[in-house]
Design a protein around this nucleic acid. Structure first.
Ligand SMILES: [Mn+2]
Ligand SMILES: [Mn+2]
Ligand SMILES: [Zn+2]
Ligand SMILES: [Zn+2]
Lengths: 140, 140
DNA sequence: TTTTATTTTGCAACTTTGTTGCAAAGTGCT
DNA sequence: AGCACTTTGCAACAAAGTTGCAAAATAAAA
């Protein structure tokens, strides 16, 4: 795990620092997406709030994580797949937010539906956020 | 216009006040969705910031406007259709954000695609936000 | 390994955004 | 007009995010 994390950073031409390693590990260990507040909670007093902001921003720019829009106006982040690179994301998947446990999942194997836009409108990106009950919470 | 605005408020059992009338008019006059900041700008020093927050919240609760999640983490609001009521929204339409002019449109006549979720997942709501170039900005 | 150059971090100070309690003003009703 | 009730504006606060800069850490060079 230490290895894959350090290698990801190097591949993105980022210096390998404690905060970056730790924050990236949080993403690898987490089932769902993480918000700034989650990381702050997970890391305790270990890093400054500002460092977390800057690290997340850097990771997004480098194509290591992507941000997920949610209806409650709190940005969450999740790991990108390998085909994302600096300044160029290819995260063509939908997101599912569980109303019960609050987890945000990236559903990589669900194809994004093709929406029919009015004449003259050109689509560049389609974000789909489905909310409901996830697999675990439904089986309780 | 004054009439339709006042009647909407009365139908929702809201007292008709200057701020509510004015803010509701902004929505009727606007092509796209409005954020809190837009209304603050439009109204100048006319109302307190807090009043705008509370008015938007009340309008959402009463089913007069609905909120639209955006990827830049700024909530925008747009008028609901007639079938929304207190505590119960029926805004089954997709949203389009123009990358050029920034306008957020409600596309009422585009049907929401049915996404195929993994086994065990149950969908309650589907938000679709398409971004790209709108009709006007494409024809320049 | 030590030195040097570059990058990153933490701190402080600040801005922006959103919330809450409460008295004053406004609205609806008789 | 008078009264009950709701809404507004203000102030004070809390939370979220940004910026500049010196100190610390990392990477590259010697
Ligand atoms: Mn994702
Ligand atoms: Mn809409
Ligand atoms: Zn769940
Ligand atoms: Zn446009």
């Amino acid at each position: 795990m230490q290895n894959i994390v350090a290698e990801t950073l190097k591949r993105s031409q980022l210096s390998v620092t404690d905060s970056r390693k730790k924050i990236l590990e949080y993403f690898h260990h987490s089932k769902g997406a993480l918000a700034h507040a989650d990381i702050e909670r997970l890391s305790g007093e270990q890093f400054d709030r500002v460092t977390i902001y800057r690290t997340l921003q850097t990771f997004v720019e480098k194509g290591i994580i992507h941000s997920i829009p949610t209806s409650d106006n709190s940005i969450r982040y999740a790991l990108c797949k390998d085909d994302c690179a600096e300044g160029h994301h290819h995260d063509n998947h939908i997101h599912f937010v569980c109303d019960v446990c609050g987890t945000t999942f990236c559903l990589d194997h669900v194809t994004i539906p093709n929406v029919q836009l009015p004449a003259g409108f050109k689509s560049k990106q389609t974000d789909v956020i489905v909310s409901g009950i996830c697999g675990k919470c439904g089986n309780i």
